[in-house]
Design a protein around this nucleic acid. Sequence first.
DNA 1: GACCAGGCACATC
DNA 2: GATGTGCATGGT
Length: 217
Amino acid sequence: MRGPVLEKIYDRLYRSFGPQHWWPGETPFEVAAGAILTQNTNWLNVEKAIFRLKQEKKLSAAALHTLPVQRLASYIRPAGYFNIKAARLKNFIRFLMEEYQGSVERMAEEDLPVIRKKLLTVNGIGPETADSIMLYALEKPVFVIDTYTKRILSRHAILTHDAPYEAYQDLFHAKLSNQVSLFNEYHALLVKLAKEFCRTRPLCSGCPLEDVKPWLG
DNA sequence: GACCAGGCACATC
DNA sequence: GATGTGCATGGT
């Protein structure tokens, strides 16, 4: 990669779309739970599940800790994969209770690499979910890589599509200043761009990145 | 009715 | 180590 392409892309996206106000959520805990619920799932469906959890007054570590997994699954049904996600949420809650007395804020007091390593030991939390929790719930400077990020960067020939998660993440970490606000906005803007222009059938016309790099298909 | 959505773990080769 | 598959609802 040559030149400050990542900065250029960011400027284009920000000028086109403006601030995205991520992550939608009232508390760090809600953001963390949302990160698990949104795995491979449309955010609108996640909102339905979160709304239900709020209705039932179960959107807290303490409440979820004692909630039977089957009941939890029924509440989060609209988010899809409800049985697996119920188990994953319970895994995360158990971890949060054992390591941080159920407090996401307490988790944030630890160093970034330590938290990340621990989060990745939780069954159901992979790299993207761990990084989403750290960036958007704990406000740690980690860049989140998702399918959209891979799609956009590979189509602009910045990395190959099959490059590992860490390769994508390392690139952002190396080329940008490690600011939470920048990482927050950048990832959200990539998602916004993908939703508008980068579905499986390429819609290049009007894309703010149209002239940034040659399209490879 | 097909296709997709802000992944991950696990089986099998 | 690489590749394939199950998980599931709701919007377009």
